[in-house]
Nucleic acid binder design. Structure first.
Lengths: 229, 229
DNA sequence: CGTCAGATTGATCTGTGTCAAACCCAGTGG
DNA sequence: CCACTGGGTTTGACACAGATCAATCTGACG
């Protein structure tokens, strides 16, 4: 897996942080070169002291918390262009989530002083970061409502649609992100077996097809109906 | 119900926003006088265009979303010193939650231009606001995990302890915030009847006592155990 | 008093969780 | 080249937390 060159990094960063100057972008990209991580790598865990934030040049990670019986609850997935880890940096607290690589991923690292510096000196950047945080806040609220109120069947449909929207699909409708039933369960807040049963129910209803981790959405219209829209 | 005078307002604001200058505080308090709202008043609803944020001088509100079958999901409670409504203002989006007064409440209003102005001109304020947003983000993550993984019995215990911590208790252990079983249910993500049954279960176990909306915590130690700590 | 919203209790139903067994591969090493 | 292995998947049987529905009770307030 190739790590992108400096120029490519700047371009990517620029799409997410529209307020950074060329100099600031270059500095970021130069200072900490992008690194690639293999599937399964733990980027950080709950309780770690964070020394900076991460930016995803390419790939996908899961952000999760661990319940006391060891069951993991996936809070969200992050994809290309996403920025994560800033909660702990902003609050100067230890991480309250863990992050693990889902498919091979290239990450950039932004040391905390750099982030705090930018916030202090570039009000537009501060505002942009605030927008990112607020966007996540809205998504969390929605998650809370859905987990609390929707049946797992609705929720899974919604999740599949969300994965399609966020990570894209092949021409034939297959989700680009390949993901285990267990992770789907940990995200939906349900048992792996329940996911399996529901997927085969969807299959019978002509909504999806799947072999292994390749899940193909056959009828997103109907899927939306199932999800409750 | 008295609305606090200008000086009192400044003092309260100052506790939440440590970075605002005397002039900025005074301006805020002068510009939009605090107003008092009666229990049950709807401050704003999902879909409203927000024209500013709110600051709670005293009282309590609930922030909720409405599912399609009309069931409301309470996302969080806000109390004295809390600041809400900023998500929509920062993102310049319509409200994604509704807010209703739980007990008589005095609110200050901060028009959006004022908030955006402060963010632009006072980096320390921007940072402070970011910290507030990040704190909420952490709480949301935790909520997601708990709703997804804990039994209602554990969750309710946790909620009672949280209400005690946030809104305080009388000398005898009675929660200061009086709240309906329905609201407890809407917060825990369960049916009202389930809350009733659990409360009487707690009663049998000597954990709480209650008549009507007055809930008295008898043994917070045991309650913590029930909540799973 | 009458009324009405909220609280309570009981009976019943059902979506999901849990446990156990079998299965399917993909990769490893002999 | 094939048997072995182990992780993920699938299926079935069963238990139970919590939802739902219906009926009654309570207490505050006009």
């Amino acid at each position: 897996m190739e790590t992108p060159d400096n120029k490519a990094c700047c371009d990517k960063l620029k799409q997410t942080f529209k307020t950074l100057s060329e100099a600031e972008l270059k500095n970021l990209a130069d200072h900490e070169p992008a690194r690639s991580y293999k599937k399964g790598t733990l980027i950080y865990s709950e309780g770690d002291r964070m020394k900076g934030c991460y930016f995803i040049y390419s790939g996908a990670v899961k952000v999760f918390q661990t319940g006391r019986e060891g069951k993991e609850q996936i809070i969200k997935f992050e994809k290309e262009g996403d920025f994560f880890g800033f909660r702990s940096v902003i609050l100067k607290e230890k991480a309250c989530t863990s992050v693990e690589v889902l498919s091979d991923t290239v990450l950039g690292f932004m040391p905390e002083q750099v982030v705090l510096e930018l916030i202090r000196n570039n009000p537009a950047f501060a505002y942009e970061l605030m927008q990112i945080a607020c966007k996540e806040l809205g998504e969390s609220n929605r998650s809370i409502r859905d987990i609390a109120q929707k049946s797992v069947k609705k929720r899974l449909a919604e999740i599949l649609l969300m994965l399609a929207a966020d990570f894209g699909v092949e021409k034939d409708g297959t989700l680009r992100l390949s993901i285990s039933r267990e992770d789907l369960g940990n995200f939906a807040g349900t048992a792996t077996e329940t996911i399996i049963r529901l997927l085969s129910e969807y299959k019978n209803e002509g909504l999806v097809e799947s072999k292994g981790r390749k899940i193909k959405l056959l009828d997103t219209g109907k899927l939306k109906k199932v999800a409750g829209y």
